[in-house]
Computed example of a mutant assay.
Amino acid sequence: MNANSNAVVTIERGTAPEATRTELRPRYEGSNICTWIGFKHVNFMVEEAVLDHLRQRGFPAGALYERYGLCTDISTIDTKILTAFHIDDLAVAEVRPVAGPGSGMSFEVELTVRRAEQVKAVTAKVTVSFRADDRGLPVEPVPAELAEHVVAELGRPAEAVEVGDRDPIELLTEGANAFGWAWRMPYFYCHFTERVQMSGYLRQMEEVVDLFLADRGVSIKKLLDEQDWIPVVPHSRIELLGEARMEEELYTIFTVERVFKRLTYTARMDCYVLRDGVLVPTATGRITHGYAVIDNRRDWSLVDFDDQMLAALGGGSGSAAGRGR
């Protein structure tokens, strides 16, 4: 075999460990308030751990695409944050393959971090799909170990919504405690040349929360300035339902589903693209938020929602936002 071929090493069954371990540090970009790392970048660490697992097993994403035309896609990510990460933390990630529904490869991921002792910081469930590239370029036969996980299109079909002559955001938020936002998908939210990737949807989820809170009069900066409060996220989940393409306008709907006493609220994110007068679902997810007060430059404490926050979360019957930045 040519040493310069960037070849994928085929792993014989039973010769590699089922689980892999790797060390990761959060990216500096994710340290937005004091030195804490936001939920999006925690999910990025989970994604990197899974990609490194595939790399250690002989299936690096770059070579899979270049040789076999396989696009490595995170199609679901479900993450629970148990302990906050700080910018200089070193995480130890363990990735274990598990049985899962559908055609994707399923994994459980655990991140631990050193405090007084090594503690569990994150648990996650991830599904990876290998999407066959359809650009018409020559490829080699797919490795046998991956063949059952190859798909022609990402997601699981969900019911589309007829628009007629309605404004899509007004239609999707009507009668709901919801907020809507439309934005053209840029190339830097995409990968493999044309499709929005999971990290793009994580960015959508982060931003739609920010826009929702500002729309309800409790913006991140307002609560920081007035009360030293910051939002914290113990749980987030996103699943791809279809494919959104580069430069399509993505309609993102954020719906508050449940407020648990004065402790947390859970909201749903639904994403659509408009094609031929029909809104096609491309992703759905949920996020749970609480609030904490900044105690010092390193520590925070969870707080109950006050009346202002409860009123904002109760909201009205739908709110439409702008179409860009």
Rank of each mutant, 00 (worst) to 15 (best):
N6P: 00
V9T: 14
T10K: 13
I11N: 05
G14S: 03
A19T: 12
E23T: 11
E23G: 01
R27E: 04
Y28H: 07
S31K: 10
I33L: 13
C34V: 11
F44C: 04
D52K: 15
Q56W: 02
R57T: 07
A63C: 07
K80P: 00
T83H: 15
F85M: 14
I87A: 02
A91Q: 04
P101G: 05
G104N: 10
T112Y: 07
V119H: 09
V122K: 13
S129D: 10
F130C: 11
R131G: 03
R135G: 12
G136P: 04
E140T: 08
H149P: 05
H149I: 13
A152S: 12
E153S: 12
E153Q: 13
R156Y: 01
R156W: 01
R166V: 00
E174M: 02
G175T: 07
G175S: 08
A176L: 15
N177Q: 10
A178L: 05
Y189S: 13
H191N: 15
H191W: 03
G200H: 08
G200S: 09
Y201T: 04
E206Q: 14
E207Y: 08
D210T: 15
A214M: 07
D215L: 02
I220P: 00
L223R: 02
D228F: 08
W229M: 06
V233A: 05
P234T: 13
E239C: 10
R245C: 02
F254Y: 14
V259E: 04
Y265R: 04
C271S: 15
C271A: 15
C271T: 07
V280N: 00
T284H: 03
G285Q: 07
G285A: 07
A292R: 14
D299A: 09
W300H: 14
D307I: 02
L310S: 01
G316A: 10
